[in-house]
Design a protein around this nucleic acid. Structure first.
Lengths: 232, 232
DNA sequence: GTCCAAATGGACCGGCGTTCCATAAGCAAT
DNA sequence: ATTGCTTATGGAACGCCGGTCCATTTGGAC
């Protein structure tokens, strides 16, 4: 068992390895090859070292992927305009920033976890909580509402984005949707009254709009629960 | 490449294998050992056969796990009271039934996917859509709202339940929450104003309540968007 | 120069998903 | 019964992976 956080006491070597370097290279490989394509052997080769060296900085593959996903989550903060707005639009902007960040790195979607331990997941929940606290909502509900919104953002993003890592390698999105639509149409209308009529909406929907539709419902409910706030 | 759906033309053998039998055994192993514990070798041994035979009925492990997760999703319909209510409470009951089903089989949480191809995922979306269609909501919004609710149910359940498959093996839930709370308290209050004060809520929250909190916000927003409906 | 902890990297292990293929079992026609 | 073909079986084998081990190197402290 070795230390996970190898901190270089002073200068260190010029070509020194570090957890940051490793995670960075892992993100690059994950972007290119997906989760199945990331192996310690390949990663080691990219970094011109052996697998054993990587384990000095990272305890196992699960941790490595979690760190990589958290780094992707961090991209959202770069895009987010930050404070200076009312809670509703601030939450909306933050949520969309997270969605877009995961959209650019689909492999990460299924690895952002809600009870935050990692740095950027923590930042996200704190930001949401601070925005919620700026609402007329009673204080004792802040935590549960903040986590609910956080769960929505990461969970629904994952649901929408993660499937892409499976199909995209083989067929295009449009082809997949068309095939699914055809399958729905072939269902028994008595058993599936809704789906058999919904196929046209399936074909030309935008993933991002589906995310914002639910988000707006949620935030709308929040507005109602908090009592109608007077616009500034 | 072999046929995935081997259909027994007539009688077949007494000890014949079938996809159903295999999925059933897989669910049992997943419940007991988790996803990492399910291997084709072990599954074959349980079924008194070899790994090769399984591949006649199931094309690979991903498909097997997806089928197993879909079967778990099917449990939700057994618990769901069904129609006969208004849309709001019908959706709520259905959502909670799904959450509880996944709660009993945590490994399945991260494998229920939203764009439904599998049998029970299809049934779920259709049921949601039918309930939404019974709302005052304009018809052209039925699809996007139904999928939004479906995304919430599966995505948020996954976020809440899936982490359990990691911790539970090593530490109890309470111990994990206590440790996380301590970590949050140790954060810089200037950087994390919300989290440093929220730890007491973290310690004694109930997972299921977090699910319903967001659900009620979402359904509340739906009610508002649909216009207030007169109670029957 | 000497020493030691930090860090490296390549060989190696056990086990996995998957494939291959020789064989068995059931069915239909003779 | 015999034959011929499809369906299905199951054990051996392949290639690769995550992870461990450990001899070796590095570079700062003295």
């Amino acid at each position: 068992m070795q230390r996970t956080r190898g901190r270089a006491p002073t200068g260190g070597r010029a070509d020194a390895l570090s957890q940051e370097l490793i995670v960075e290279a892992a993100v690059a490989l994950l972007d290119e090859l997906g989760e199945r394509g990331l192996t310690f052997r390949l990663l080691a080769k990219q970094l011109k070292t052996g697998p054993g060296a990587l384990y000095w900085h990272v305890s196992n593959k699960d941790e490595l992927v979690a760190l990589a996903a958290d780094q992707v989550l961090g991209h959202a903060f770069a895009a987010d305009p930050g404070s200076g707005e009312d809670a509703g639009s601030g939450l909306r902007a933050l949520a969309v920033a997270v969605f877009d960040a995961l959209d650019r790195h689909p492999w990460a979607a299924s690895h952002v976890s809600a009870p935050p331990t990692l740095a950027n997941a923590l930042r996200l929940l704190d930001r949401i909580g601070t925005l919620v606290a700026g609402t007329a909502l009673p204080a004792e509900r802040h935590f549960e509402v903040a986590t609910a919104i956080s769960y929505y953002i990461t969970g629904v993003s994952a649901q929408i984005i993660a499937p892409r890592t499976v199909h995209d390698a083989t067929v295009s999105r449009d082809a997949f949707l068309a095939r699914t639509a055809r399958r729905w149409e072939a269902l028994d209308a008595a058993d599936y009254p809704f789906l058999t009529r919904a196929t046209e909406h399936l074909r030309d929907h935008a993933d991002r709009d589906q995310f914002t539709t639910g988000l707006d419902l949620l935030l709308g409910g929040l507005n109602t629960a908090a009592g109608p706030r007077p616009p500034v």
